[in-house]
Design a protein around this nucleic acid. Structure first.
Lengths: 254, 254
DNA sequence: GCAAAAGTGTTTATGATACACCCATGC
DNA sequence: GCATGGGTGTATCATAAACACTTTTGC
C-alpha cells in the first residue's frame, strides 16, 4: 500500500495508433450499417485502402467487453512516452513506431473507479515493414477502419477524435505519411493515403508535381509487382536529406 | 492520509502566461549582461515593447528563492484547465485570460520530492484591459522579458521554450494576437506584436494589406491619443464575425 | 521646420489550380 | 482487345514579396 498526505490521481497513458491496411479487411458483422440504399457504392476513384485504428477489447470492468484505446498505468520511474510504448507492446505486440504526445485528458469522472488523468499519444505504425497481425493476440486486439468504429470505453472517442484532427494538421506540415508506408512505395500510394487522411480527393498531376518538387522523393530502378495492370515506379523518401533540410528551417508542405 | 494499492504520481498544472508590456519596464539589476559593447543599441526600427512572461518567486524548498512558472496541485474534483486558472489567480491575481493546453511533462526526477507529472498551459493575458500589477503581490510575482529571464526552477525553462514555440506556430494560424491587445488598437501595435513573437521584421505595407484583406479588422472613428507624432487610426477585431467564419472552415493566416 | 511615425499602390515572382489524353501491362 | 491504372504539361489565377514617398502632428 502507498500512502500520501494529499490525494493523488492515477495517471495513465493511452495510444491512438493509426495504420494503413493494405490487405482487404474482413467485412465486420455490421451492427449498425447506416442506410446502405442511400450510399450504395464507394467512390471508385478513391482507393479503398483505409486508415485504421488499433483497439483492444477490455476484459475487466469497467467497460468489460467494450473496445478501448491501448494504454495503462504509468510506472513511477518511467518516462511518459516510454510508458505508452510499453503498454502498447504489452497489449498488442506493436512496436517500432512513430509517436508524439497528443495531450492530457483529465475530466473528473472520466473513469468511474477513481480520478484518472491520461496522457494520450498519437502513434503511427508501418504495417508493411512491421506486420503485426502475428504478434497481436487476435482475440482482444483489432484494427478498425475509421468509419466502422465500435463504441469506445471511457472518453476514448473524444481522444480519438482529437488524434485524428491532429493527424490531419500534421500531415500538411510534416512528412508523417511515410511512417505509414513501406520503404519503397508508389506515388499513388502516397496520394491515396493523403486522401484517406484528409478526406478529400487530390489532383493527380498537381500532387505528383508537388511531391517531386520537394526533391525528397527519389525514384528507384524498380517497379511494383503482381498488379493486374501497368506496374508503377517505386520511390523512397530521402529521410536523411529531409532531416538535414529540416534542421535548416525547411518546412514540409503538402 | 490517502492510501492506494499502487503508487500514484502527483499531478500539477503550470501556466506559461504571456503578456505584452506597454509601459517601460524598470531596468533589472542585470546580473549577467552579455557583452554590452558588442550589442550597444536595440534596433530602433523594432518597437521596444516586449513580450513578457509571468513568473513567481518560490518561497519553499525545493528551489526556494528561484523563479518558477505559476502552478500547483490539481484537486481531485476539478478540471485540469480549471486547476490551472485557479492556481494562477491564487498565486498572481491574474484572471480572465486565454488558455490552451500545451502538454504533459513528466520526466522522472523533474521534481526532487516525488514523481510529479505536470500539465502545462499556455496563457495570454491582456494587460491593457485587465492591468494586473495592482492585484499581483509584487513581492513574489513579476513580469520578465524573454531576453531577460532568470534561471527557472524544475524543468520550467524547457516548458517555457515549448510554450514559446507553440505561440509562434499558433500566431500564424489563429488570431491569438488580439488576446494581448486592447480592444482598440493601432495596426502598428499589431505588427510590432507579430514581430516580437516571430522575431523577424515584417513589411509594413504588405502586413497592413493582409490584415485589412481579412475584413475582420474594422477601423473606428477614433485615433490614438497622447503621442508625440501623427496619431494612428484605432481598429478593433471583429471577433463575432471571426467565430462565424471559423465555424465554416475559415482559417486565419498571417 | 524638423523629428517621428502614419499612411498608401504597383510591379514582379511564385505557387496553386484546373484540366485530358496516351501508355504499358495482365488477362 | 479491353480493362485498369500509370504517367505526363500548359495556361490561368491568386497570393506573396519587394519596394519609397507624402502626410500629419507635436514640439
Amino acid at each position: 500500500m502507498f500512502t500520501y498526505r494529499y490525494p493523488h490521481p492515477a495517471v495513465t497513458v493511452d495510444c491512438v495508433v493509426f495504420g494503413l491496411d493494405d490487405a482487404p479487411r474482413p467485412v465486420p458483422a455490421d451492427a449498425d450499417r447506416r442506410d446502405a440504399a442511400a450510399e450504395p457504392r464507394r467512390d471508385p476513384a478513391v482507393d479503398t485502402r483505409d486508415l485504421t485504428v488499433l483497439l483492444i477489447q477490455r476484459d475487466l470492468d469497467p467497460y468489460a467487453g467494450a473496445w478501448a484505446l491501448p494504454g495503462g498505468f504509468v510506472q513511477m520511474d518511467e518516462e511518459l512516452e516510454a510508458a505508452a510504448l510499453r503498454e502498447l507492446e504489452e497489449e498488442t505486440g506493436v512496436r517500432d513506431l512513430y509517436v508524439e504526445q497528443l495531450g492530457a485528458f483529465g475530466t473528473p469522472g472520466r473513469d468511474p473507479r477513481e480520478r484518472v488523468i491520461t496522457i494520450a499519444y498519437l502513434a503511427i505504425v508501418n504495417l508493411f515493414d512491421h506486420p503485426v497481425t502475428a504478434a497481436t493476440d487476435a482475440r482482444n486486439a483489432g484494427w478498425f477502419a475509421l468509419d466502422e468504429l465500435p463504441r469506445l470505453a471511457f472518453d476514448h472517442e473524444q481522444i480519438l477524435e482529437a488524434a485524428l484532427e491532429r493527424l490531419r494538421t500534421n500531415v500538411r506540415k510534416e512528412p508523417v505519411v511515410f511512417e505509414f508506408l513501406p520503404e519503397k512505395f508508389t506515388l499513388r500510394q502516397v496520394q491515396s493515403l493523403y486522401e484517406a487522411i484528409l478526406g478529400e480527393p487530390l489532383d493527380k498531376r498537381n500532387f505528383r508535381k508537388k511531391l517531386q518538387a520537394t526533391g525528397l522523393i527519389v525514384p528507384l530502378d524498380e517497379v511494383e509487382m503482381d498488379v493486374a495492370h501497368r506496374a508503377a515506379q517505386l520511390h523512397r523518401f530521402d529521410r536523411e536529406r529531409y532531416e538535414a533540410l529540416h534542421a535548416d528551417g525547411y518546412r514540409w508542405n503538402a
